[in-house]
Design a protein around this nucleic acid. Structure first.
Lengths: 228, 228
DNA sequence: CGCGCCCCGATACGGTGTACGCACCGCCGA
DNA sequence: TCGGCGGTGCGTACACCGTATCGGGGCGCG
């Protein structure tokens, strides 16, 4: 038999592996969201049978974890300069870039796997010189992450709104302000003001504003710790 | 026919209404998570036919929005004292209490409805005296919310871990640190230190630590704005 | 009393995650 | 050389999901 490569079937492509499965699933999720990822679809994408995937992952949750870990492993940790503020900012930007490319990673939280650990190590190390206690370091990193999450989540919800209704936020507010009684009559003046004053949404600006708040808070924490 | 109330059937209970549907769905979600909420289950809970729900909500997403709005409407906005820092803290605590009672509200973001608007008005008003621009106010509130979200999400993931494996975080780390090559060999010293130094998880303390960072950041923003 | 309208919900369809068990292949001991 | 065997791929089946469709039955009105 001149069959050069293994035994596997006609219709298939790659011989099925963690990497191949993760790549196919990520490809599907990247355009179509997690909604577009199903065991059948992933299997179809690689030309294999649905149940074959279960030889590699125990269930869909593990597939999701595999996807996340694969993404994290591919993303290099940002370089460190020694200036915690600059490094934290770079970390946040890098994380934001990742989530923007793979918004489905916000759908759920998966535990830290082998691929993400280098990034975590890098993040922790970045704050070591500040002299903060480990609890504080972890807390700070959590805050930075949640800032990124919130920004992306908001950005995506605006994008979804636009995709599904064709309206931008302003138009949507105008269309729906009538639904809520008491909005016209000045019962909610601040909300009315917010709607009126909100111009074009600038996601970058909003993100950097939020990040600045966090970084200032961290600076205060470091100052307090060092001084105390 | 001595049937006193309308025409509807034997097995049913309440005559079906927005409130009844929302309450039933919330009841299911509160213990069992969003996973336990399906059109059939909600209908069964109120003894009606599945498709009857569609007379009140167009699809499951709208049911979810209805659930969220109902919860928000029932939760009174915290009183304001005039001290933005105290008020922001109270807002965060109140929000945290809500999400703790209804963790499924973190599963997705639903647009602001009539029930939540009073709380939003209150939150915006709370920051008006600081003299911040509307964009900054919205950004600050977003940061506070995302702090709460992150804290709850983390708390829930720890609870899930415990429920599904019976381990606490420490035991889980111990059990899985072998899976990641290079963790034993000192390749990731900070991660190793984090695992070693992490004691019992104190969610309250972690939450207040994060919140303090944000509040300090907001103070810096206000000072900068006022001074500039 | 009879008719038409309208609302309720049974049924059905296409999709999902996944348990089960069979077919097949390459390896290894006899 | 042959026989068995472990492991992998996957066809089939089941329970459940969201929801489109449509038939039947109760009510209001003429």
């Amino acid at each position: 038999m001149p069959d050069a490569e293994s035994h596997d079937g006609r219709p298939g492509r790659t011989p099925l592996s963690f990497a191949a499965i993760a790549d196919a699933a990520i490809r599907l999720a990247d355009h179509g969201g997690m909604h577009a990822v199903s065991m059948r679809k992933v299997a179809a994408e690689l030309g294999s049978g649905t149940m074959s995937l279960y030889r590699y992952v125990a269930n869909k949750e593990q597939l999701y974890a595999l996807m996340c870990d694969t993404v994290l492993a591919a993303e290099p940790a940002p370089a460190r300069s020694g200036d915690w503020r600059a490094d934290l900012r770079a970390l946040a930007e890098s994380e934001r870039a990742v989530y923007r490319r793979h918004p489905w990673m916000l759908d759920s939280i998966s535990p830290l796997g082998p691929g993400g650990i280098a990034r975590v190590e890098n993040s922790l190390a970045l704050l070591a010189p500040t002299g903060l206690a480990m609890d504080d370091i972890v807390g700070v990193l959590g805050m930075v992450s949640s800032t990124v999450h919130a920004a992306i989540r908001h950005e995506m919800s605006v994008a979804d709104l636009h995709r599904s209704t064709g309206m931008d936020v302003h138009e949507w507010h105008a269309a729906h302000s009538g639904d809520i009684k008491g909005l016209q009559g000045g019962e909610f003046p601040m909300v009315a003001r917010m709607i009126a004053e909100t111009g074009r949404v600038d996601h970058d600006a909003a993100f950097h504003r939020s990040l600045a708040i966090v970084l200032d808070g961290v600076a205060a924490l470091i100052a307090r710790t060092g001084a105390g």
